[in-house]
């Protein structure tokens, strides 16, 4: 295992920038977001987590999935999607696990070419957590604070250095060409393991394998849900999208766009002819919770929640996913 001086991280990222677009968490006026690093940007390395999950790097807020052009009475389709090589530095273990959840959806029956190409071409450098956020509950799902798989490199803050663990060949290659990495000692490794372990112990723990949802209580909580959509947009495992066609003003060229959608939106299930199978607010809330905690577990063998705590922090009605889980395990 290797380690890198904290002071050298920026230089290392600088080297990576020569070949890749490098994105890292940047704190701007208290809002931490993954940003493409420019010269003046200082990555934040002791942050809790980004406000919006980094799923958008793989499933963008909006993306063109098809172009079409009408010429001489013929319709021509344009299928092009270019994705460059990217490095996502500082992604938290919960969000890496979020991507592993999304992979299941993208690979089921039909391959989602846009998502999977981005996944393939993006190098993930994860940053394990040594200090839990107030609302974090990744320990419940084992999706943090440490990370076993899913990233190309895994960093752990051990004081003046980051311990660096290799997670893939791509990750190993990044290290081999760089002078900033030195051999880590046994003591370093032990220290990292201890810090991550201590971090875990500060978090709530519930045995998620025993989860059996209390639907009555969920409905009760759901009655306070404002269906504001914010949880679905910031969630690392919410993947629902809408598809819309858009024409240019001249009307001979257009594109098909997919953009994030929210199952909290009453129009989400509304069909032409005005039939809406999920017409009640509380039903939409219950569906979201069951989708994450039951349907995805039964379908893919993993929970659709990774315990990042974003929804808990942002919910305007202060509804807590952790509490729902706790009530389901008691």
């Amino acid at each position: 295992m290797k380690k890198i001086k904290k002071a050298d991280v920026k230089k290392f990222l600088g080297d990576l920038k020569k070949e890749h677009e490098v994105f890292a968490p940047v704190d701007e006026d208290g809002v931490v977001e993954f940003k493409r690093l420019s010269k003046k940007d200082e990555p934040t390395l002791d942050y809790v987590n980004s406000v919006v999950s980094p799923k958008g790097f793989f499933l963008p807020m909006k993306e063109k999935i098809l172009g079409f052009r009408e010429a001489n009475d013929k319709i021509e389709l344009i299928d092009e999607h270019e994705v460059g090589g990217r490095v996502l530095f500082g992604i938290r273990p919960c969000d890496v696990n979020g991507l592993l959840v999304l992979d299941n959806v993208a690979r089921e029956e039909y391959m989602d070419p846009y998502y999977l190409e981005r996944r393939q071409k993006t190098i993930l450098i994860a940053l394990e957590c040594v200090k839990p956020g107030v609302d974090c509950f990744c320990r419940v799902f084992g999706s943090g604070p440490g990370l076993e798989m899913g990233a190309d490199l895994v960093y752990t803050d051990i004081g003046d250095y980051f311990l660096v663990r290799v997670g893939s060949d791509k990750g190993a290659k990044l290290l081999s060409g760089s002078d900033y990495f030195v051999e880590a000692s046994d003591a370093d490794e032990k220290k990292a393991a201890k810090l991550v372990d201590e971090c875990a112990k500060k978090m709530s723990n519930v045995e998620s394998s025993k989860l059996k949802l209390d639907l009555e209580k969920i409905r009760d909580k759901g009655s306070w849900c404002l269906n504001c959509y914010s949880c679905t947009f910031i969630c690392p495992t919410c993947y629902c999208f809408d598809v819309v066609d858009r024409m240019n003003p001249k009307g001979c060229e257009g594109q098909r766009i997919r953009c994030w959608d929210s199952c909290m939106n009453p129009q989400f299930t509304l069909m032409a002819g005005n039939f809406n199978p999920r017409n009640k607010k509380v039903d939409r809330f219950v569906n979201r919770i069951r989708h994450k905690l039951e349907y995805m577990r039964d379908r893919y063998g993993v929970f659709g929640c990774v315990g990042c705590g974003r929804c808990v922090r942002e919910c305007p009605s202060h509804i807590s996913m952790l509490e729902i889980i706790q009530e389901g395990v008691r």
Partner: peptide, 9 residues
């Protein structure tokens, strides 16, 4: 929206 199990609708 997608017909192929991706869009969640």
């Amino acid at each position: 929206k997608c017909g192929i199990g991706k869009c969640g609708h």
